[in-house]
């Protein structure tokens, strides 16, 4: 049994121009010790997936219409608010993209990390204070005793993101969800944070869901990748397979449009058009309007996510053939 299993998840939001479906039947599973990257562009539904797991979908206007999220055998969507809260933070943790917004400006960071223990009534060996200092040391904050007493604004962006990570791993959760944790950071700082996350995954057997739009970070960190487009998963594959021979035309396009530091082609190959308006998704396959392989069938039938090789799936009527 997988550690976390999401099945046929549908999330919708009310807007002034109608109901939009942020997630349209998303299914995936996460094993212990595995890093699964949810790769997608803005509006693909990757962040909503995290919100749904963490019970953070604002209701109204949002609602989880159907589907199931099973964690360690228990159905999360049937738990009470209180039970969900107890799970979140202790066994499922979230690392936010914007650490400055996620940290409370009026409390010292040490206090905020300690809060994790207090909320969940944990009493770490050697006391909360020692645990906080140990954590800060582990995530590479120099002079932790002094730094623990400082406020979020006294830390740089990279340091704050480390503190967010410390808060997330404080209670040794089984699942860590990282929602674009490096997007707001400069490359040199991003490299530090990616290294830290890599260390954490080596040290614990937690499963990690890594949400990002950055193919480079995926290549550095992920074991498996689920590519999302317009509220659906369009391809899942082992990270090596995805970068070597992607099957879904969208994945292929994404890889081709990424400018690279190690090559020197003058023309990039973009995907034509832009992401569809979620209020009026194209019929059939949502990607067909931008797809070079689209045919009549694509407008009529939504392609299901089907197995296209050992351990990999793609949702396409005319997948790219193996390289």
């Amino acid at each position: 049994m997988a550690l976390l299993e999401v099945e046929d998840l549908q999330v919708s939001f009310d807007t002034a121009s109608g109901r939009i479906f942020a997630l349209n039947g998303v299914s995936f599973s996460l094993e212990r010790g595995e890093v699964l990257a949810l790769l997608g562009e803005s509006g693909s539904g990757k962040s909503v997936t995290a919100s749904a797991i963490m019970d953070l979908v604002p209701n109204p206007p949002g609602a989880i219409d159907r589907g199931s999220i099973r964690f360690d055998g228990a159905e999360l969507l049937q738990l009470s608010r209180k039970e969900r809260r107890d799970l979140c933070g202790s066994r499922i943790a979230l690392i936010f993209q914007d650490a400055l917004a996620a940290l409370n400006p009026v409390y010292p960071v040490g206090w905020q990390i300690a809060e994790m223990y207090r909320i969940h009534g944990r009493n770490p060996e050697g006391g909360v204070e020692k645990a906080v200092i140990d954590l800060l040391t582990a995530i590479g904050i120099p002079d932790p005793e002094r730094r623990a007493r400082q406020y979020p604004h006294e830390f740089s962006g990279g340091m704050r993101q480390r503190i967010m990570i410390a808060m997330a791993v404080a209670l040794e959760p089984d699942v860590i969800i990282a929602d674009e944790p490096t997007t707001a950071l400069d490359v040199t700082i991003q490299a530090q944070v990616v290294d830290l996350l890599a260390t954490i995954r080596k040290r614990s057997d937690a499963g990690m869901i890594f949400i990002t739009h950055d193919l480079g970070v995926v290549a550095e960190l992920a074991d498996r990748v689920a590519v999302m487009y317009a509220g659906r998963i369009v391809e899942t594959a082992n990270v090596f397979e995805l970068f070597e021979d992607a099957r879904h035309p969208y994945s292929v396009g994404l890889l081709a449009s990424q400018p690279r530091l190690d090559t020197d082609d003058d023309e990039l190959v973009p995907i034509p058009g832009s992401a569809p308006n979620p209020v009026a998704l194209p019929s059939g396959c949502a990607f067909r309007t931008r797809c070079p392989r689209a045919e009549g069938l694509c407008a009529e039938v939504i392609p299901p996510l089907e197995t296209v090789g050992p351990g990999r799936q793609a949702a396409c009527h005319f997948p790219v053939s193996p390289a």
Binding site: V187, T188, Q190, A191, Q192, V194, D195, D214, L215, G216, V217, V218, A219, E220, A222, V239, F240, F243, L255, Q258, R260, L261, D262
Partner: peptide, 20 residues
């Protein structure tokens, strides 16, 4: 330059990286 992640998982761990 070395901090920019390369979109190629095969290079993972084989690239010389300078982490400042």
């Amino acid at each position: 330059m070395s901090a920019v992640p390369t979109p190629d998982p095969r290079l993972r761990g084989h690239r010389k990286r300078i982490v400042l």
